[in-house]
Write a protein that binds this DNA or RNA. Structure first.
Length: 268
DNA sequence: ACGCGGCCCTGGATGC
DNA sequence: TGCATCCAGGGCCGCG
């Protein structure tokens, strides 16, 4: 569910409510997600003031007066804020703030993860190897050309590799390649610069548009207010049977275990 | 070193 | 209606 645009949507949604607030209480209904929460988790949040909310790849980064709180939503995680939040079946973490606001982390599949670190962020194991943010100028055709030079894997699989570019997941990888008119199975190292340029342009365009729409909802994505996103209504190929541009039948197949969609007429 | 398959977990959709 | 099966947007690990 949550790829870069969804995580960005969550960050923008919670920031106004939590920045500047001090944590007064932490409750763990379940202290283990994908892996156990770090030792001293509650204590490291207690009485800390939230300075800033940002995003790196698919990680939410909450800067505390002492340290950073990293949250990954996995496939089914959500962070919601409110004064009257009801705990749901899979709400695992609750954080109370000094104005009475409450933050919930809910995650049915528990593929999410959290950590709190006082070391420099860039040295954190989860962030250390991650590639450039796609919406920055560090992500460009020249970079892609170098990075893909020895990659024989299909371009769609490459786009989902966080080491290559941060935050692109399964849905947006298909959407990006549709907009770039490149077939997902094309070997990454065989793509010439003009098409790499198209892929870069399409990546930025798709992600920006998705952020502007508040992210996508498949099954259960909800933003910080518990509302679904609306970008899925704009999907061009993902989960579609017919191409919106040319009416051709959309092809779907598995690549590295993930479902891929493309239009055989629009994408060459 | 690289690329891929398996796996972690639950819930929803589908089929019998 | 009830039960079994399959599938899902992420990312780590281990194999060949």
């Amino acid at each position: 569910m949550p790829e870069l645009p969804e995580v960005e949507t969550v960050c923008r949604g919670i920031a106004p409510a939590i920045v500047g607030r001090t944590i007064t209480k932490v409750q763990l209904w379940r202290a283990s997600l994908r892996e156990p929460l770090p030792r001293g988790f509650k204590k490291q949040l207690q009485a800390k003031t939230i300075q800033k909310v940002s995003r790196r790849a698919k990680y939410i980064i909450i800067e505390l007066s002492d340290g950073h709180w990293l949250i990954h939503l996995g496939m089914s995680g959500s962070v919601t804020v409110g004064f009257q939040l009801q705990r749901k079946k899979h709400t695992h973490v609750g954080v109370w703030l000094d104005d009475g606001m409450l933050l919930h982390y809910t995650d049915p599949r528990r593929f999410g993860r959290m950590d709190i670190t006082r070391a420099p962020l860039e040295s954190h194991a989860w962030l250390a190897g991650i590639g450039p943010e796609p919406l920055t100028k560090n992500f460009n055709a020249k970079y892609l050309q170098t990075a893909l030079k020895n990659k024989t894997m299909p371009i769609k699989t490459a786009l989902m590799d966080a080491q290559l570019v941060a935050g692109v997941g399964n849905i947006y990888a298909s959407e990006i390649l549709f907009l770039a008119k490149v077939r997902p199975q094309t070997a990454a190292n065989k793509i010439r610069p003009p098409r790499l340029e198209r892929i870069v342009t399409a990546t930025k365009a798709v992600l920006k548009k998705a952020i502007a729409s508040g992210g996508s909802t498949l099954k259960d994505f909800v933003d910080s207010q518990g509302e679904p996103g609306y970008f899925q209504t704009q999907w061009q190929v993902y989960a579609r049977a017919q191409c919106l541009q040319c009416n051709a039948a959309i092809i779907n197949f598995k690549q590295s275990g993930r479902m891929t969609y493309y239009c055989p007429r629009c994408q060459k």
